[in-house]
Design a protein around this nucleic acid. Structure first.
Lengths: 256, 256
DNA sequence: CCATCTTTGTGCACGCGTTCACAAAGGCAT
DNA sequence: ATGCCTTTGTGAACGCGTGCACAAAGATGG
């Protein structure tokens, strides 16, 4: 999971729980697949299986949107696709800008899932003057100087930050000042933003660390009693040898 | 935020709540930054601000690890860095493989955050024979045929899937059969995996859709009463014009 | 038109996670 | 040594999310 929202203590926006909102795209994807195969209706049980969730949860989620199902039959696929899309705001076009066209930024620009879901890459922005004009995914990269103008000219309200960690906060401030109110942040930093601005964070390194935790736990359970686990090495203080990470991020290599 | 875990109803692994585990990497990053600046101790208030969380939450999180603070003073930075790293299993080396070396896979291979945190890219794997041998981020790409051998020879237990959606399930099955028990999935599909295998999903498109929802809500609140919002278009049924998305993913463009 | 069967929609209970608020603990100055 | 001040660690309350289980609703067949 991208690691989550920032600020706002789970505001139930217009009666729809945040957890439900997070699942709607999942349902939408499953429904669109069914729609392609021209399946007319689907039961909560089937759809839940396709989306990888509990069927009761799915029904409750849909109940927040209204009563769109037919008892004894299921849900009309096309109708549900439309309703969810409308609820998510995908019936309109969302111009987005991607700031920071490194490896990741380029990958994002090329990512098909953007354009196909109502999101249009309005511009690619990078601080490196050498990048300016160079086309990535068919779109010419523009220099950071143009940022404010681009945002305003295109009416962009969603920005994607794929810069090094060091630049992220400043970029976010410029985006917000220019009118952006939603940010998808790939840089490994905590952005501090004013009230009213939504930030979602995707942090690859954090995801791996969480996996490592579970992995270690599994390994520890199997070989329960192989020492070196329960006994805490009592070293206190002691200089950690720290090397600076490549992308302005900081490594966490341990002394022992 | 990567979008979250699959299966396993929030198992409290060894007494540490899942939500806490998810925040530990965040604390670790803030602490490592402090460590670099040679800050000896830090209060829960300061550290919480740096990590972007509530200080009470942080203290409770740390209380699950043990009593590592000193009242009236705060926490010893170095010691805490070590304890969290150990808890997360970052004191050991985790070999990972990346499957699917497209734009995203290449970005991941080049991502510095991996190597710097105890994760070592053991191999890059792609199904395209033309890619074989070509170095990406200094590591030669190997063909999918070698997958099982690579996993076993390197003792890999964590796999990263960056393939198109269509290939993801099959790749996951081969990874798991070869011994992988943790998967970080970037493909926009629900993976079904056997008990005991952890899957975390990062879905760029879903994150954007969630932002779009909030963005729409904000816009709707400002112009409360601009019509076209509360009145639901009563079209029922009706063929959606569906185009196939680039990466095997499915678009959700609405009829209206 | 009635009986039966399927599937939705939801009331309810439970558990996890968050937050408040405060007592206990330790440093530090005098 | 003693008292003050800072900060931790946690008990307790609350709210959100989840899942069970069932009644209501509707389709379908006779």
């Amino acid at each position: 999971m991208a690691t989550g929202r920032t600020h706002r203590p789970a505001t139930r926006s217009r009666g729809i729980p945040e957890a439900t909102v997070a699942r709607l795209p999942l349902y939408l994807r499953a429904l669109t697949a069914l729609s392609e195969r021209s399946v007319p209706t689907v039961s909560s049980e089937e759809l839940a299986a396709a989306a990888g969730v509990n069927s009761a949860k799915l029904r409750k989620d849909f109940s927040y949107l209204g009563s769109y199902g037919t008892r004894g039959v299921g849900y009309d696929v096309e109708y549900l696709v439309y309703q969810i899309s409308r609820e998510l705001g995908l019936t309109q076009d969302w111009p987005v800008v991607i700031v920071g066209i490194g490896n990741l930024g380029a990958a994002l620009a090329n990512y098909g899932g953007f354009a196909s879901r109502g999101f249009r890459v309005a511009a690619l922005i990078d601080a490196d003057p050498a990048m300016a004009g160079k086309p990535v995914a068919g779109i010419p990269v523009q220099h950071t100087d143009e940022l404010e103008k681009i945002i305003k000219d295109n009416g962009v309200s969603i920005g994607v930050i794929a810069t090094p960690a060091g630049a992220a906060q400043q970029v976010s401030e410029r985006l917000i000042a220019a009118g952006v109110t939603s940010i998808l942040n790939f840089a490994p930093t905590v952005l501090s933003v004013p009230e009213g601005v939504d930030v979602r964070k995707v942090d690859l390194s954090i995801e791996l660390q969480i996996l490592a935790f579970h992995e270690q736990r599994k390994a520890g359970e199997e070989a329960a009693g192989a020492g070196a686990d329960v006994s805490p090495p009592p070293l206190r203080g002691g200089a950690a040898t720290n090397r600076k990470g490549p992308d302005g991020d900081v490594p966490a290599v341990m002394p022992a």
